[in-house]
Amino acid sequence: MNSPHEINVIKMKDVSKVYDNGAVALDNINISIKRGEFVFIVGTSGAGKSSFIKLLLREITPTAGTVTINGYNIKNMDNHDIPYLRRSLGVIFQDYRLLPNKTVYENVAFAMRVIESPRRLILRSVNSVLDVVGLREKYKCFPNQLSGGEQQRVAIARAIVNNPAIVIADEPTGNLDPETSWEIMDIFQRINAAGTTIVMATHDKTIVDTMQKRVIAIENGHIVRDESIGGYGYEI
């Protein structure tokens, strides 16, 4: 369980991931991420970034080594605990993954309803996170009535509505123009300032270079660089 004394919310020790077809996605990874950190995961496509993200979400388990997230050892954990691990994580994807037949409000509330939160709490929390992402007025809109940036803000609201300890974002600005991307990054900064750990996989050089946060670079399944204040480091 997540004890307040545990500062490392994510810890990987000697982690390797080899898929059934023999492809080595990650090879002997060692990292720790502390509570409240803002971390970029960079690397070219196929470098192992998505496997890294999938491990954090416990979509896959490591072939060797241990991955501890919010106190859960994801390899040995009981299947019944997986939903509870995921409740401590907020996840954001490049393609937003909103439900098209639900309004903004319902999309965000959905994340609370399916973990059986009390209705009164849902109303309060959803309104408050819609304030955080600046979409309170558009709560009745359906996703197709929103711009890409707005849809991603709804997805962020959904990710943080259950107060996760860690927000995991997989290329969240990948489909957005630069200006909109900065709006998204601004929201992430605010969420991070409130104490939430953020792990963001990205290709966006400008964002990484400008933000001056910790950067973990993965190349061919290895961590080739881990700088506490770093830049993107690749030429595009």
Binding site: P83, V91, R97, L99, I115, E116
Partner: peptide, 15 residues
Amino acid sequence: KEIAIMKYVGATDWF
């Protein structure tokens, strides 16, 4: 898609 999102936000399998 709804099921996948439910899984990501931590709905139990029984739910």
